[in-house]
């Protein structure tokens, strides 16, 4: 039912836990519904010289998750933290459920919502960071 990669991430999840004083937090789902995921991010401003763009860019310097849910929910949480770490916020916002599922070697159709939850949690954490830091100009144009 699950791919080897899913089982591996489920048994040995990366970036599990909480970040003390996170820059952004995103929670999706609800324990009452059977699954809940929280992502914590720490954002770093790269100095202009080191950033690839013209302006100083913001990257996800650290990311951690807490997840109550099935094996797929835990595996997708772990996977999205691995995928998002070190990315700029713009790059991170482009991660979607298909990308997470693909990286996990596929998910059973009924578990695709877990993968969606992971992507949503990341978006929420970034939004939370941006709202706190009032940088509306940097919002994802698609939103």
């Amino acid at each position: 039912m699950y791919s080897k990669k899913v089982i591996e991430q489920f048994l040995h999840p990366k970036n599990m836990g909480k970040i003390d004083k996170p820059d952004g937090v995103g929670t999706v789902g609800n324990i009452l519904c059977g699954d809940q995921m929280t992502l914590y991010i720490k954002v770093k401003n790269l100095p202009r010289a080191k950033s690839r763009g013209k302006k100083g860019e913001e990257i996800i310097d650290d990311i951690k998750f807490e997840s109550f849910g099935c094996a797929a929910a835990i595996a997708t949480s772990s996977m999205i933290t691995e995928m998002a770490k070190g990315k700029t916020l713009e790059e991170a916002l482009k991660l979607n459920r298909e990308m997470v599922a693909k990286k996990l070697g596929g998910l059973p159709p009924i578990k695709m919502h877990c993968s969606n939850m992971a992507a949503q949690a990341l978006k929420k954490a970034i939004e939370n960071y941006r709202n706190k830091n009032q940088k509306p100009e940097a919002r994802n144009p698609k939103e």
Binding site: Y2, I7, F10, L11, G34, D35, F68, G69, C70, A71, A73, I74
Partner: peptide, 9 residues
Amino acid sequence: AEGESIMMA
């Protein structure tokens, strides 16, 4: 600890 996770583990 979610049930499906316990079962899979």
